[in-house]
Design a binder for these strands. Structure first.
Lengths: 166, 166
DNA sequence: ACTATGTTTCATTATTTATTGAAAGTTTAG
DNA sequence: CTAAACTTTCAATAAATAATGAAACATAGT
């Protein structure tokens, strides 16, 4: 397979994957494109390679910057803005974990906690509280694990998985 | 807060959460509803409580059964089919991990592997291969970790998190 | 101050995804 | 066999989400 072709296929696959995890396709694709590009790319480069509009690129690069996955890079002597993505996959995973934790795991923890003061002492209420409490425990553990991952050094995940596998 | 109200809020929150992780809202809501219900519910019960159509309930209960999260339960003497969901959150998490691994993690691993035989020896190709290989490693580790989780006993996750946190 | 070059915004439009509801299918009981 | 009770399917529709493109905005150079 040719390099260009391989890169294109990778970008496609990454887009599809992101999509099924609730991240919009173009956003994932821009990310993938930047990962496999050797040089920083301008808005126009991205527009051309992915065949999407200027507005779309602008919105999604911004979102990627919000997520901490992409950075603007100024090239001396150029007026255009260029974008780059970190290529360290561990770091990428850490950033994603960080954002998802903040945006999705923590809010549900809050909801669970707030529901725990439901009143009533009958069997049905107790049952519900039990479910909530288990769920809260579990989610709390997920949260802690993500937190540890986010804060950990570069090789924590690898080392940890090794430990777990034995 | 009243029980009914608390349950309703939980169902809402669960639906929203599922949604942002790429699982359709009604599917998550049906799951939540079944989790907090003491008795098995019929299609009509679900239609009424969530205000959705018969077809929608049918499709989503089927999807939930595919995922192994919900079971049909026959009640002696009744013609209707009733549904129940397991209330053990660890088990739920295991089932979800199992399905997502199969449907999303493994396919991307396949793609990465298949791209690794891209031809070329120039610097750019080597760079791309390096990114792929790191990504493949990482994804492979995620896959193994999920696998371990899926196969593990009921308290593996808790115990493991405890170990990791220390 | 004006123009050229680029960026951002956002109302409109297109696409994708989910939902409905009615028709077709199935099963059970008499 | 037939009717009643219930389930499934799926074409049509609605709702949610994403993308476009042109106008507004910003900035640097002359």
């Amino acid at each position: 397979m040719e390099l260009k072709e391989a890169k294109a296929e990778f970008i496609q696959a990454w887009g599809t994957l992101g999509n099924s995890w609730g991240i919009n396709r173009t956003m994932s694709q821009i990310h993938a494109l930047l990962i496999v590009s050797n040089e920083p790319l301008s808005t126009e480069d991205i527009m051309e390679q992915l065949k999407v509009s200027r507005g779309n690129v602008n919105m999604n690069t911004r979102a990627l910057m919000d997520w901490g996955l992409v950075k603007k890079q100024l090239i001396p002597g150029e007026r255009k803005e260029y974008f780059t993505a970190g290529k360290d996959i561990n770091e990428v995973a850490r950033q994603i974990a960080k954002e998802r934790k903040r945006r999705e795991v923590e809010p549900i923890l809050d909801v669970i906690k707030s529901l725990e003061d439901v009143k009533g002492k009958d069997a049905e209420t107790e049952e519900f509280k039990k479910v909530l409490s288990e769920l809260g425990d579990f989610t709390g553990k997920v949260n802690s694990a993500l937190d540890k991952f986010v804060r950990s050094d570069r090789n924590w995940f690898t080392k940890t998985v090794m430990r777990l596998m034995t």
